[in-house]
């Protein structure tokens, strides 16, 4: 929606500019050539044209790259979602058109509502946890204390580990019978029997969200810490003279100054989280009984396990559209922060 309003605004501006120009032309008399262009010598014009061509030549590599690695896959995926695309298609290249059948099948499947709800819960839960903990840690590391730098770099560790490794380790930690977490809780006499973190339909999603929060904290911490460093100390000094310390300082100085960074972190976080696949596959494979099945895992399953590439693509596109909404929000947010 935001895109269309932007476009219509731009269009109306353009038309008003055109009418102004027309009026000006009318004023200057019957001479149809605008005064500026009449003065240009042909040589100058050709030089300008050459310049323009050079400008475009510089753009060509980027355009080719974008079209090849971004444009082509997106277009292909959209086309695929309207086709009966099977394993045979890879060999013969034939994929009959089926119109909206793939979308109809995917959207009407009883699993879709489960996946959609799980995707929403997973995304909201992960973002909330990552952001709050990341922000708290970022503020904590603003203080000067020994080992600050080392601790901060250790916190980056989850980010550096391959996701397959982290999920395998977490699978052991969260194991019901011999997992470290249950051992630990058992020693503290918090629980007596093994908690089925990954095998209970009510706990599995929470456990997966927990692991994803752990993975996402470094990203949030790093960006927010950077944002905090940008806030000039003078503001806090001036604030403290006026009695703004602690929570008040956070509310009236830190938060407003951090806003642009926050919006970027949140929107990027949402887009990254929506498409999370490896962590869920590594931890639960979407189970037990689809309780951690998201749109991303379901789309992967359809394409690469059941070989229904058309349906997988259709579901993938649903995810792309959802991400796109957030991407537009991100673009607007970043534009606003530039304007400010």
């Amino acid at each position: 929606m935001s895109l269309t309003t932007d476009l219509s605004q731009a269009k109306s501006q353009a038309t008003s500019r055109a009418t102004l120009r027309a009026k000006a032309r009318a004023k200057s008399g019957s001479n149809a050539t605008p005064p500026g262009e009449a003065n240009q010598s042909p040589r100058r014009r050709s030089r300008k044209r050459r310049e323009r061509i050079f400008q475009w030549l510089f753009l060509v590599p980027a355009v080719i790259y974008m079209a090849l690695f971004f444009g082509y896959p997106v277009v292909k995926n959209v086309v695929m979602s309207f086709q009966d695309y099977t394993t045979t298609t890879f060999f013969t290249g034939e994929a009959p058109w089926v119109g909206l059948a793939n979308y109809a099948k995917v959207l009407s499947s009883s699993l879709f509502s489960t996946s959609l709800l799980n995707t929403a819960l997973f995304t909201i839960g992960s973002i909330l946890g990552q952001f709050v903990i990341g922000l708290a840690l970022a503020i904590f590391f603003q203080r000067k204390f020994p080992l600050n730098g080392i601790l901060r770099s250790l916190l980056l560790l989850p980010w550096l580990l391959p996701l397959i490794v982290s999920s395998a380790v977490w699978r052991w930690i969260l194991d019901k019978d011999s997992g470290a977490l249950n051992r630990f809780l058992g020693e503290l006499h918090i629980v007596n029997t093994g908690v089925p973190w990954l095998t209970s339909t009510s706990l599995a999603l929470i456990a997966v969200v927990g692991v994803n929060i752990w993975i996402g904290i470094p990203f949030n911490l790093t960006i927010l810490y950077g944002g905090l460093q940008e806030i000039p100390d003078e503001l806090y000094e001036a604030g403290s003279l006026d009695g703004a310390t602690g929570w008040k300082a956070f509310r009236h100085i830190t938060w407003p100054m951090l806003r642009p960074v926050v919006s970027v972190v949140l929107v990027l976080g949402v887009v990254y989280t929506l498409k999370v696949l490896d962590i869920i596959l590594g931890l639960t494979n979407g189970g037990p009984a689809n309780s951690t099945q998201t749109i991303a895992t379901q789309s992967y399953d359809l394409s690469f396990h059941e070989f229904k590439f058309g349906e997988g693509a259709a579901l993938g596109n649903v995810l792309v559209v959802i991400s796109l909404v957030f991407a537009v929000l991100y673009l607007r947010a970043s534009r606003r922060s530039v304007d400010e």
Binding site: R171, D175, K176, D177, P196, L198, T199, S200, N285, G287
Partner: peptide
């Protein structure tokens, strides 16, 4: 049978057996 069976692979099953669990 442990309800962990819902998430085990065949390799995990072998590990349980080898550990005497």
């Amino acid at each position: 049978v442990s309800s962990s069976a819902l998430n085990w692979t065949q390799a995990d099953v072998k590990d349980q057996f080898m550990a005497g669990k």
